[in-house]
Design a protein around this nucleic acid. Structure first.
Lengths: 338, 338
DNA sequence: GGATAAAAAGTGATCGATCCACTTCTGAGC
DNA sequence: GCTCAGAAGTGGATCGATCACTTTTTATCC
């Protein structure tokens, strides 16, 4: 009906003139409906509805100098942390921000370049990086960047310690079953979570006086787990594997079967992430249930605090990762050295 | 050095005055570096570098009325189509668009509302929906919306027919092994891909004169596959299951084992998606390798064409889905009726 | 009823880019 | 020297909001 020649969306001025008020009044209405006299409010309300008016967010952003948008950056190709993102998204929403997920291809430096570009384009107010990035010295960034703790090491304390603790718990559990000789198939070493788990694994092995036949650097893939097992010498004596995550664990199990080792009869395998398939695989996977929702919430809270210049919240409620014991772990075979 | 009092990013005017040219010239430089005389270009180039100038994209968008941004919408809980997104992202980039992935919670109507909001906020120029949405009559949307064919039914021909064909191929393959009695565990029925597969399954059963003990509606989860199998009567005689995807197939297998049926000895199971874990599961999954990259590219091409008012590209190169035969399928047990 | 304060509404500038309609400068070719 | 075309400058207008002020209206109190 009231379309302009160009068929453009209605502007605040059109609303104002239809309502018989000034554009300022409409603007006030948009920000706080109660600051208007009831009679005026009704007029504006009517005009907004009649013209099907939606404020142009680009114009608003330009004037207010903030976009109310956050970006979450992750490496394309890497596993997609769906639950974390959902929680992060919801948390950001509650804080008044829109979230946009940017999947960046290429290596670490390419990603960093893209993040830098994003940071300075004026399009987002903060960035949460879920993939490892290398921000070299030159960063005079305009917006806060939070690198999630469970994926890199800038976010001390958020989830790192938790990661560490559980690896130790896993090893201790396996020891309690009788295992003495271990293997760790680590994740990609540019991820801090992978580095942390690996170093805690090594520490624990040393402190408890156990034997490790290696801590193999993988890339989070099932293939890397498979390769790690199939390339072991026959007489290595390993009876328990701590895998970087559930997918790697699946590869480890398949590799073990391919050499005639039964799981868990000859080899126990522990995963990480509690993915759906782990519960239904055969054998089902012992794993670590990670509170991804809490991680997502915490990361966004931290980011929002940085944006607003508020004190950074302490990760008071430590994320609680729960060990889940299923079929892939059992006591070692009788013949194993102890 | 040249920071303003407010420490704001440099504007085009500051660049112009440092370079000793007009702001118009700088603007020209930004759009086409070659339209400037070399001497002028160098001056501008220097000023841009010295001030570390980045054009304010918000201001630019406001004036040009386009944002060069696309949104890909997906349901927050659903499985994340990583490969498709990566390809879509890259393709969009090549066409000059930034991609933002919006993960929307809630049901179909909530999602549609969010998409509508997105469509009219003036923030994106096109939307690719990967989750089922119900755009009711009232859509007078400002921007094109493409709903991916493999996930819903607006995008005729992109992948629907392909979907259909492969289900038939699967059944025919199983028949060639000797199977006569089938079960289909379908995906969530608000997904067109799930509906298509189901109807092609039913058609094929009928046309080939086979027996189906049911086409159970699931929700893409392993649990739904597990439940479908465990709730079958003992004497149903089923020897082959066509699952909605690999995760469902895992659940089916686990369910079969839980009732003492061996896979593939007593029951053959076919999956869909060729996910990494399927290759390493035990038994490894027979499945359909889907060309997600091609789907992502095609969807973006179509969306960009709609945005630019160009003719919609025909899905000329049909996405080729390849059947992969692994351990989860074999001839039926000797005792099965034929 | 009039003074006064508070609330409501209006006016015009502003954000940082592009676009427009000109004018002016520069240099090559004849 | 003249013409002509391309490059560059000039000075605004424009996009659609918000915001700092100013002005008008309303409410309150004596």
């Amino acid at each position: 009906m009231a379309d302009t020649a160009a068929n453009r969306p209605a502007t605040i001025h059109q609303v104002a003139s239809l309502a018989g008020v000034s554009h300022t009044t409409v603007s006030r209405y948009l920000q706080d409906k109660d600051s208007l006299k009831p009679k005026t409010r009704i007029k504006v309300e009517y005009a907004v509805k009649a013209l099907d008016y939606r404020p142009n967010l680009v114009a608003r952003s330009m004037r207010t100098r903030h976009t109310n948008r956050l970006a979450i950056v992750l490496a394309s190709g890497a596993h997609f942390p769906g639950r974390l993102l959902a929680a992060a998204s919801r948390t950001a929403h509650e804080a008044g921000y829109q979230v946009e997920i940017v999947s960046v291809e290429g290596g670490s430096q390419e990603r960093s370049a893209r993040i830098d570009e994003l940071a300075r384009s004026g399009q987002v107010e903060g960035i949460l990086a879920l993939s490892p990035i290398s921000l070299k010295g030159k960063r005079s960034n305009r917006v806060p960047i939070v690198v999630s703790g469970s994926y890199d090491d800038k976010l001390h304390g958020l989830a790192e310690l938790a990661d560490a603790t559980e690896i130790r718990d896993i090893v201790e559990y396996l020891v309690s079953l009788g295992h003495r000789t271990f293997l760790h198939v680590a994740g990609a070493q540019n991820f801090a979570s992978a580095r942390n788990r690996k170093s805690v694994y090594l520490e624990t092995i040393e402190e408890l006086g156990l034997r490790s036949v290696g801590a193999v650097d993988g890339d989070w893939s099932a293939q890397s787990g498979f390769d790690a097992i199939t390339s072991l010498p026959d007489d290595c004596g390993v009876t328990a594997v701590v895998a970087a995550n559930d997918v790697v664990a699946m590869g480890v199990i398949r590799g073990a079967l391919s050499r005639g080792w039964s799981v868990p009869g000859d080899l126990s395998v522990f995963g990480w992430d509690d993915e759906e398939i782990g519960r239904f695989a055969t054998p089902s996977l012992s794993t670590v249930a990670v509170d991804r929702e809490a991680q997502g919430r915490a990361a966004i809270h931290r980011l929002v605090a940085e944006i607003r210049g508020e004190p950074i919240p302490e990760p008071a409620i430590r994320t609680i990762n729960r060990l889940i014991f299923r079929e892939s772990t059992a006591p070692p075979p009788a013949g194993a050295p102890s």
